[in-house]
Amino acid sequence: MKLFCVFLVALACVGGTMGNGLKCTLNPANVPTSWIDIVDPCVKVMESQVKTEIAAAMKYLAMILNNNDTNIRQEWLSAEEALSDALKLEAEVTRSIRNIIITCENPKETETSSFNDYHLVDYLITDFLEEQHKGQRDLAGKLSTLGKMMQTHGQLGEFLFDKKLLNGEI
């Protein structure tokens, strides 16, 4: 009995020192926030752009697979159809980037409405729009080549185009 009591006391002591659990959450540091000048409406359109880009990525993944669907299209009958869909998808993405630029250049709905996010706008124009325009021109060119190749030669035209595409010759 005595031993048991000693054991209990010992356990209580151990519990007392160890029972607080792990310090999993650290105290946050004190960082001023005045340098964070990105404004809410601009952040919101950027967030929705991330969703658009991810949706586009998933759609391209579906294109590689060529499959049937319930909520996203997973099947294309021809290369021409898939390329044409890709071009439309890129145009949608471009339009949506343009809208972000407009919103971030002159955000409304807040007191800070006059805040023009020059740097973000420049980044979107130089990096994103540049890539979009290059990509769209590339897809449109490929679609045009394929369309012409298929006009009189149909399947042979598509087969040849596909092999050229694989070898980076188009």
Binding site: L61, A62, L65, N67, N68, D69, I72
Partner: peptide, 11 residues
Amino acid sequence: ITRRGGKMDLN
């Protein structure tokens, strides 16, 4: 999956 003649279904 496609190598084995199957299809992918993202759903």
